[in-house]
Design a protein around this nucleic acid. Structure first.
Lengths: 240, 240
DNA sequence: TAAATGAGAGAGAACGTTCTCTCTTTTTTG
DNA sequence: CAAAAAAGAGAGAACGTTCTCTCTCATTTA
């Protein structure tokens, strides 16, 4: 029960008077209403995320989420049909953000740098508060929460499987390319290397080293060493 | 609601009729009564573990645990004062088992072998069912559950901190010794290596590779590569 | 027979969810 | 364009269920 609610709907009235009465079904998709709905969903998701970080998926109650969002249960349930739905949505976006970091991999010159940077990006992202100023709690907690939930919740498991499948594919493609370029030892089992690197990276992300005083720069050689160890690159790459 | 319960108390009656009435206060500690109490506690803990693996700490209800243990709530609460207490006990023993694996580290000839074996032992242990025959679910789930709980439950966090502190000390001692023996590069930051190896190992344990079809032997070179990468041993050790 | 043990009903709180009602905004109608 | 109608959004009480834990009373054990 903080300073919630704002002037409620009034906030969206004075947006801009230029766009009015689309009156056809397009309004449903792009109109003022639709935009407001999106904003509200966002509000709920942000609040839920904070609650889940604080108390866990099962531990956080709908009332807790309602309070954090400054909303009544009746209002909240207009946007999400169940707690499950919120959990799924949050799991999905969280895992998707992870997957998106991988997309930037191709920006690096060689495969070892690429992996190192992806790892560092992950740790950086996870130890930051999610948008908005002020130091809030790390989102690495959510990472653990999602993984725990995925072990017994079938739909969350499916979500994780989806994004991790994409990540594995992307990594595998990059590794294959590097192999053909002669950057890494042709003997290396790429499938295993992908799975191992994913697991190993997850371990480091979960520990949230930056929150424990280990600076990000200190992790650079760690990721590099892991990549070198698992991929066995040709000498020229191994020695930095 | 499987084939639980057994003949309940009857199980402990016909143990052996030889030892009866020690009658002094020592009986409280070592007598038939005390042994029975221990057995009951064990029964509860085993049941609770199964439930927690199946539904999570928060997800499993006391009724579920009672059913699994073949016990009434009244009986169960005679042995544990709260659900919290059961969670703490299970977290503690689970983490302790992890720490105990480390104790066997000194049996290896060199530091790389030692770490590799510790890693493999962990994975083996975690992917096995806990005592008793029949394939039950992996205890790697419990690992994730404990870690998730430790992020918001202070007493579980303290338990984890305790055992992980011991593990870190033990690892650090082994690394220092290896450094002095000239087995590893004197430049290596041992503190960071310990923390990284712990995190990385945890990641692999959580993924539970054996349950996904990756045989244990395939992980041997992975652990070896991680150890080599992070510790930078002298040449003779690096090439197996 | 006194103490320990267990079964099971159930108390009381908290849970996720739904219901009813009010108020505002948008669309339709005359 | 004004009035009427419909739809959307929100509040908050209330619902039925489930939760953890306790209490009473019967049974077993020494």
């Amino acid at each position: 029960m903080v300073d919630q609610a704002l002037p409620k709907q009034a906030a969206n009235i004075s947006a801009d008077a230029a766009d009015d009465e689309p009156r056809c079904f397009v309004a449903k998709l792009f109109g003022k209403r639709a935009r407001n709905r999106e904003a509200q969903e966002e509000r709920i998701l942000t609040a839920a995320m904070n609650c889940f970080i604080r108390s866990g998926f099962r531990g956080a109650s709908m009332n807790e989420i309602c309070s954090e969002a400054g909303m009544s249960p009746g209002a909240l349930y207009r946007y999400f049909p169940s707690k499950e739905a919120i959990i799924e949505k949050i799991s999905a976006t969280h895992r998707q953000q992870s997957a998106e970091i991988l997309a930037r991999m191709s920006q690096s010159n060689n495969i070892i740098d690429a992996i190192t940077n992806v790892g560092l990006d992950h740790v950086r992202k996870m130890s930051m508060n999610d948008e908005g100023p002020g130091p809030r709690d790390s989102s690495a907690r959510l990472f653990v929460e999602v993984r725990a939930e995925s072990m017994r919740n079938e739909s969350v498991a499916a979500i994780c499987e989806l994004h991790e499948g994409l990540m594995r594919e992307e990594l595998l493609a990059a590794f294959s390319a590097a192999k053909e370029c002669g950057e890494i030892d042709p003997v290396t089992d790429l499938e295993l290397a992908v799975a191992s690197l994913a697991a190993v990276g997850e371990g480091i992300i979960m520990r949230n080293f930056p929150a424990q005083g280990v600076p990000l720069e200190a992790l650079e050689p760690v990721f590099r060493a892991l990549a070198v160890g698992l991929l066995r690159p040709t000498k020229s790459l191994a020695n930095k």
